[in-house]
């Protein structure tokens, strides 16, 4: 089948950038979306045009490196799926697709579809951890974790940090990302001692990174490739509000 692509091309951070039109004439249904881009790039190289830069690494949906907007949807039309796991069988001959990088003040474009997501690392660095020194841990079974909590914690911990939630959010908020880490650690007994400081520090960092505010619209939840729920944002709100009211 034939696919028409409109791709954002931007040489570097200071370049203005524009949409360019390309055609991939011979797309196989079994190809993944990124393999289709590989084919386009090989073709561009033959034509002496610089290939499209796009982030990708594991290509099995777990590293969180890939992702762009496909026709205005983060990671494309299939729910619960990263771009690398999206396959061309979900498109049809002649489809016209608009590929744009994640757009947010906090995610400056590096080149074409590649953006800098260092802001997410800095949110984790602000408090997305448990302060345990190597070697000081008690036996693994010394801390019991109710199965349900372990499962819910895992649901939140599944976040791959791809940034689709930010990209899709009309406010460019990083609430789902931040809430997922706060919920992951806050649902475990190990995470309790620092729970309040964590909420305050991570929320403050997200603000400093110029992410927007959550207005409970739910776009993030709809496109999250790991299907993390809005509930984690409520947990973050609860932790933050409680910490603000009761903190000494």
């Amino acid at each position: 089948m034939r696919i028409i692509l409109h791709i954002w091309r931007q040489r570097n951070a200071s370049d203005k950038g524009k949409m360019s039109r390309y055609e991939v004439p011979d797309v196989n249904h079994e190809m993944s979306f990124l393999q289709m881009l590989d084919v386009l790039n090989e073709d561009l190289i033959v034509r002496n045009e610089e290939p499209v830069a796009f982030d990708h690494d594991c290509r099995e949906g777990i590293c969180g490196m890939c992702g762009c907007m496909v026709n205005g949807m983060a990671h494309g039309p299939l729910p619960g799926t990263t771009l690398c796991q999206l396959h061309m069988r979900h498109f049809k001959d002649g489809d016209e697709l608009y590929l744009e990088p994640w757009r947010a003040k906090a995610f400056p474009v590096v080149k074409d579809l590649v953006v800098d997501r260092g802001a997410l690392d800095r949110i984790i660095a602000a408090g997305g951890y448990i302060s345990v020194a190597t070697g000081s841990a008690p036996d693994g079974n010394a801390v019991l974790v109710p199965k349900e909590n372990a499962e819910r914690s895992m649901d939140a911990a599944a976040c791959i940090g791809c940034g689709a939630c930010v990209a899709m959010c009309p406010n460019a908020a990083a609430a789902l990302f931040t809430g997922a880490k706060i919920a992951h650690l806050g649902l475990l007994p190990q995470g309790q001692p620092e729970r309040e400081q964590r909420a305050i520090a991570m929320v403050a960092q997200a603000r400093q990174e110029l992410f927007g505010s959550c207005t409970n619209i739910g776009e993030c939840e709809a496109v999250c490739p790991k299907e993390i729920k809005l509930e984690v944002i409520a947990r973050m709100n609860a932790d933050f509000i409680r910490a603000s009211l009761t903190g000494r």
Partner: peptide
């Protein structure tokens, strides 16, 4: 043996039995 302990303490959500044990 130490690795499991360390990772549990860091908050790695290992699978649990209904009793809460690993």
């Amino acid at each position: 043996l130490n690795i499991i302990d360390q990772c549990v303490a860091q908050g790695v959500p290992f699978a649990r039995e209904y009793s809460g044990y690993l």
